[in-house]
Structure formats: C-alpha cells, structure tokens
Design a protein around this nucleic acid. Sequence first.
DNA 1: CGTCCGCTTGACTCAGATCAAACTTGGTGG
DNA 2: CCACCAAGTTTGATCTGAGTCAAGCGGACG
Lengths: 178, 178
Amino acid sequence: MIRIMSKLAVLFAHAPLTRVRTGQAVFHRDDPIRDAIFLESGSIALVRTLSEGETLTLHVARPGTLLAEASLFAARYHCDAIARTDTALRRVARSAFLDGLSGTPATLLDLFAGAAKEVQAQRARVEILRMKRLPDRLDAWLALNGAPDDQPWTEVAEAIGVSPAALYRELAKRRKAG
Amino acid sequence: MIRIMSKLAVLFAHAPLTRVRTGQAVFHRDDPIRDAIFLESGSIALVRTLSEGETLTLHVARPGTLLAEASLFAARYHCDAIARTDTALRRVARSAFLDGLSGTPATLLDLFAGAAKEVQAQRARVEILRMKRLPDRLDAWLALNGAPDDQPWTEVAEAIGVSPAALYRELAKRRKAG
DNA sequence: CGTCCGCTTGACTCAGATCAAACTTGGTGG
DNA sequence: CCACCAAGTTTGATCTGAGTCAAGCGGACG
C-alpha cells in the first residue's frame, strides 16, 4: 500500500502505535511532559476544566498534527486531553523529538507555520468574545465559519460564549426578518 | 562594543535600520505582505479596528522579536501595526528571510517556541473572556499577571473586556472587604 | 493655571442569564 | 411496533450584573 507521509509523520514512523478510546484521557493538567505526541487518526480535544464541572474546549487536534505543540516547551501540561473519537497516536521522547527536528528545517518550518496559524485563530476568537452584544458575536462567528450544516447551534452558543436560549431567540428573530 | 546578538537578529544584521515614531503605522490591514520585520527597539501594537472607532489590541511586540510572525505565511496583514513608542526596525524580503531560516534550525526552533508560547497566552485570554462574571475575570487575570504596579486599571479593564466603571466598583468592593 | 487622565460613585436601563415547560426527532431495547 | 429516553430546539417569565451616562475629585505636566 502506497501511503503519502508528511514530513512530521516520518519522525514518528518507528514509534509504536497506541490506541485510545472515545472519552479516555491522553494526559491531564499538571502531568509532567515526557513525550511528543503525534495524532495518527481520530480527534482529541484539549480541554480546561473550570470550577464545578464547567469545561472549556481550547482546541481540537486533527490527524497529522502534534498534540499540544504548545507543551513541547513547558514542563507540565496546562490542560486535559480527551479523545473525542477512537484515536491512534504515536509517542516519542520529547528530547529525542526535538533533536530530530533540528535536522529537518522544512518540518520545523511547517510546525512554525501551523503554530502561527493557530495564533491567528485564537486572536479571532478573542475578537469575538470581546464584543458585548450577542448579534455582533454571531455575525462575526458566521463571517468566520460560514453557516453550520452538521454542527448543532448549542455548540455555536458555547463557542461564542452565550447561553443556548439567548442564541435561539436571536435566530428566531432573524428568521422573522431576512 | 561587544553586543550579544540573538540568532534571529543575525538574519537582519545587514538590513538597513528604519525608524518609526510613536503613533505611526508600520503596516495596515489588507496591505500585501512583502517583508519579514524585526523589531530592534521600542514597542509596536498589533491592533484591529472594530466598527466605529472601537479598537482591540491583539498583541504588543517587544524588541528582539519578529513583528506579526503569524503573517509570515499569509498574503495580507490581518491587522494594523501602530508604534507605541519611537521604534527602530529592520526589514528583509520575506522569501529571502524564509530561505535564510532553513539554514538555521536553532533559530527556527526558537520561533516555533515563541509562537507556541503565544498560543498559550491567547488561550488563557480566551478562558478569561468566556467567564460571565466580572469578579471571576478579575481573579483569573490577577492569578495570571499578578498585581499591576505601573499599569493603570483602565488597561486591565480593557484586557478583561469590562468597562472601567464596573472594574472600579469591584475594586472598591474588595477594598471594603479583604 | 488650566487641562488631561486616572479614579470614584450614583442612578438608570437593558441585554442576556437563569429557570422552566413543551415539542420534535432519532435511537434503543423490550 | 411501541415505550422510552436523550439531545436539540422553541418560547415565556423573571432577575440581575454590568454597561452607559453623568458628575466630581486629585495629581501631573505643559
């Protein structure tokens, strides 16, 4: 079987494959960081647990990317990682991974580009959350992400930081107009 | 004079120095991106102009860093850059800069690390802005940044997305307690 | 000495949170 | 095939945190 392998994947090619089931944690906040983790398939959410059950999704990692790249340079994780689907991942000792990276500037550049893009995405999120009125937030979110086809509106409400009830009200209001 | 020069600075060493005065723009939103820009001294704010005069500060660049690293991989700028103090910077054609980077993995790793750190900072900001109550936001901000010594509270209000009046009220309330 | 800015407080208002009750849909299991 | 349950959606009633407007204070600085 011929397989196109990203440059990043090559660095993990010899590492054993680990499988994680939906709902299981890959790591927890404050765990010491030992490995670089590559997401082979599936999807993993980076989640911060706020006071009392409330939870905030910081990021959803997709296949072919590093999990929590930000944590490559920290001593401990800043959030929890929870599998959203059954996933497969590979681990390499962090120091070994960093050493390997030094030999592959192109991969390093890809990672830098990915992180830069993520910075922009987060800044866009900040811009939305700083708006005071709900209609503005919704407009901004729609301009950025287009109309949600599969995604339920409750998730949109979560993303823009308003209650589902308030969002549905606004949607009803818009339906009555244009 | 002996000078410690970061690896990043070396890549700009031969570029001419440009000076920018306080309040002047280095680039505007939607300008095509031609150069990589290195901030030699001073400080430059990345600002997004919202509807009608309102403005949101996305980031403040410090000396020794790239300006708008995120934009190295985009076609046009996503925000304005305004000098907050008199500054000095150096420009190198973007493609030439990227080529130069490929030869210096250590620098590239530094940039990646910087971007990763910035991602974490933005995520922390998102976490704060998603809180509904003002006291929670203030607590979170204080836990992250400690008590502000020089910075006026109006800026803190701006950072956590509340009106100065509301923040001063909360501060007064706390003074009356512990 | 006047003016700007950070700070402080009061009064009023309102957008949106919260609580709550239904209704629709799809899936699951008896 | 139907009873049942969970999730998404809809909408009403009520409450409240914080935004807005406004007026006033003190210190810094040209």
